[in-house]
Simulated assay, not measured.
Amino acid sequence: MIKKRRHKTVGQAIVEFALSTTVIFLLLSAAVDLGLIFFTLQALRAAAQEGATYGSYPLVVTNNSGRVTAVTLNYEEIFRRIRTAGGTQPTGVANLLDLNGDGIDDVSQPAVFSKDNPTNPNGFVIIENPKGANPSNLSGTCATTTPRVDMRNAGQNCWIRVTIRYRYQLFFPFAPAFGREIILRVTHTMPIRSQFVG
């Protein structure tokens, strides 16, 4: 009888070990992924803030005679600032040079960002220039060509809003319901700081 109990106890311990190891592995994988997601969001926040900070100082466009024709945002440079916020080489957990995760540099992909359509809601970098007195209720676009209006009026009630989306590949896909990837999204809004009036 003693031998039978001993064999039964050993078999029970193996089953308990297998069940508990599975649960521990799932919890560990969740902790690893949550930590990596947190650090990725931090990198995206820094990039969105860098782009919005640069874009909050708009360009004054003049014609050949030196007359101001518009006050506008330099969308290409804002995008470059976002991409290089973490350096010019992909390092760390978030590769800002490949936001859509297809392994190709985003600089030549209009699906990620297009200077001709910077507000494309399907892009991975969205740069908007909304207006409004209340930052929680912004809409429309600030005029750039009408004298003494919006950005040509010292940026009155004009804002820049940078949204970055990032395709994050799960390190440990601990639940089939989540799939292999999730889309992270970060937005940063700043007032336009133009001092130009005219």
Rank of each mutant, 00 (worst) to 15 (best):
L28Q: 04
T144E: 04
P191K: 02
E128D: 11
R67H: 11
M151V: 10
L26F: 10
P147K: 04
L36F: 11
Y54A: 05
E77A: 10
V68M: 10
L97I: 01
G179E: 08
A133K: 00
E181A: 15
I127W: 02
G101N: 12
E16F: 08
S56R: 01
C158A: 06
N117I: 10
D105C: 08
A30F: 01
G86I: 04
T53G: 05
L184G: 09
T9R: 09
R148V: 11
N63W: 01
L96K: 02
F17A: 15
N129M: 05
Y54G: 03
D116E: 12
R165W: 00
I192N: 02
R161A: 07
S108C: 13
Y54W: 04
T9H: 09
A13V: 05
L59Q: 13
G103T: 03
Q49D: 13
L41G: 08
P173I: 02
V32C: 04
S108E: 10
V15L: 15
M151W: 00
N137C: 12
M151L: 08
E77P: 01
T9F: 12
G101W: 00
F172A: 14
L36W: 00
Q109E: 06
V71E: 09
M151N: 06
G123F: 00
A177I: 13
I24Q: 13
S114L: 05
F172I: 12
A133P: 06
F79E: 06
A47Q: 07
V71M: 12
A94T: 05
G101V: 11
D105Y: 04
F17P: 12
K115T: 10
T84E: 08
I192A: 01
N137L: 14
V71L: 08
G66H: 01
V23R: 01
Q109A: 07
I104V: 14
D98K: 06
D106C: 03
P118T: 04
G35I: 04
D98G: 09
N122T: 15
A175L: 10
L138D: 11
F113A: 04
T144W: 00
L73G: 05
D102C: 07
T163Q: 05
F178G: 06
